[in-house]
Design a protein around this nucleic acid. Structure first.
Lengths: 261, 261
DNA sequence: CGTTGCGTTGAATAAGGTCAAATAGAGTGG
DNA sequence: CCACTCTATTTGACCTTATTCAACGCAACG
């Protein structure tokens, strides 16, 4: 998972430049760090059509990383927006709160996925981001990222794509919330996780849910009891095997049929 | 509404350069067109902290406009992504379809709002965009926009903000769909429209819904009958006055209280 | 070993969906 | 101008689904 045994050339961060450190509560990366160039997540964080030099430039952006323990917040709604984050290990959940105090999980972010883009719009975060279990993130100071993206068109384009992808993702969550029933939502959720695990080289059909039933329910717009019941029913029907947080998809095909395809 | 009597200097599109015309099905703008600099929507489309020169550069991007009649599509899901669109007059609805054939309205776009950003991610549109009533849009060829944004950092930043704002918007729709009940959804919808009308200089409490009950229901994740019933109930309770598509908010305060604030 | 958080399950209830029918309005063609 | 058609909307009756409330099991932890 780590990129320790890598000795490819990279642009080292200028020493002493990381005045973001204190503000962002992160630890600086020494020149020893191999950076993005040979990070195993490189092709999740970054487009494959970036030149090596661009990857190195991007890498130089990541002045520091942050480690979060279970339940610790990366940022809170209302916090000044200073950086975007790329999950390295672990899992981050993002939570939106409306004025009426109601809150909802708006997404789970896996290694290689970017957290925090909702802060760009207003210069302050619109949601909380909280670690589920031990989690590491790379910190991308936004001002530096902006400056870099003016120099490196490919990186700018990549950023646009990431932002757009987030729109598409939320849009398909809207579709799920607005027009699927409980069973279909769960099926869709499981298949989505499966697909993302696969893309990261993990088993497609056998994984552990780091989040609680309540958090799943919150994301999918249903009560935790309903989540539990649907899991139980799917289990009885032989579609999945579920033991606490450990899930095994016995019939991905059957799940796919449930959501109509 | 039009910016006809404006004679400020602007960068005219180079003649003969609009080879996008045929592809995008739009008509070219003559040099006679006043462009964005004195468009009444300027401060909706564009950030107020753009310099005049930057606005002119942006304006030069808009090589053509498109007029759409009621029900006509700006693009369809799967179409190659070539441009972003800024609504000038009228209303555009965007519709997502999932694999199972289910579809849902994912947003209504008013003058000054940008349509089409979900196409950036994959290079093809993820939704349909259809005009509700006569509608005009400005066409922003995306490749040119990208090139411009490398030359003009402020425009790039503005684009990032627009994309992020779209994420925030979808995110709050997720919250609505996942945790509000029918009445609260409608209240939220009406207040949102009201706020957007206000921002455009129209009455905050007296407006016409261009969309059908079914389209409203689709956006809000409920059946058209439920939409109708909620309108009727709100009417009885003296919160709104509703006559077909004509709405008057009698107690915006009361509506706000419904969603808990 | 009691406490606490998470998960499961059951029974009663409420909210919204579905089906059906009636009405209203806009647009069309005679 | 009127009859006709088509679509949008409203309303009622009934039914399905998911929520709510409550009880209980289980595992981790101090």
């Amino acid at each position: 998972m780590t990129a320790s045994s890598c000795s490819l050339p990279m642009t080292a961060p200028e020493p002493g430049v990381c005045d973001d450190d204190a503000r962002l509560g992160c630890r600086a990366l020494g020149a020893a760090s191999a950076g993005c160039v040979c990070c195993s997540l490189r092709f999740h964080c970054l487009s494959s059509d970036l030149a090596q030099s661009e990857v190195a430039q991007f890498s130089a952006l990541v002045l520091c990383r942050r480690h979060l323990k279970d339940g610790q917040a990366l940022y809170r709604a209302g916090d000044a927006f200073a950086a975007l984050y790329l999950v390295r290990t672990g899992l981050v959940k993002s939570i939106v709160l409306n004025e009426g105090g109601r809150e909802q999980v708006s997404g789970f972010y896996m290694p290689g996925e970017m957290v925090g883009v909702d802060g760009i719009a207003a210069g302050k975060h619109a949601s909380d981001a909280v670690a589920l279990g031990d989690t590491d993130v790379c910190v991308l100071p936004y001002e530096r990222l902006e400056k870099l993206s003016h120099r490196a068109p490919a990186i700018d384009r990549h950023l646009h794509r990431i932002l757009s992808k987030e729109v598409v993702r939320k849009q398909s969550m809207m579709l799920l919330l607005g027009s699927l029933r409980a069973e279909e939502r769960i099926a869709s959720f499981l298949l989505n996780l499966s697909q993302r695990f696969t893309a990261r080289g993990f088993s497609a059909c056998d994984f552990v849910l780091r989040m609680t039933r309540e958090e799943i329910g919150s994301l999918l717009g249903m009560q935790l009891e309903t989540v539990s019941r649907v899991f139980s029913r799917m289990h009885k029907e032989g579609l999945i095997q579920i033991d606490g947080k450990h899930v095994r998809l016995l019939s991905p095909q059957g799940l796919r049929r449930m959501i109509g395809n």
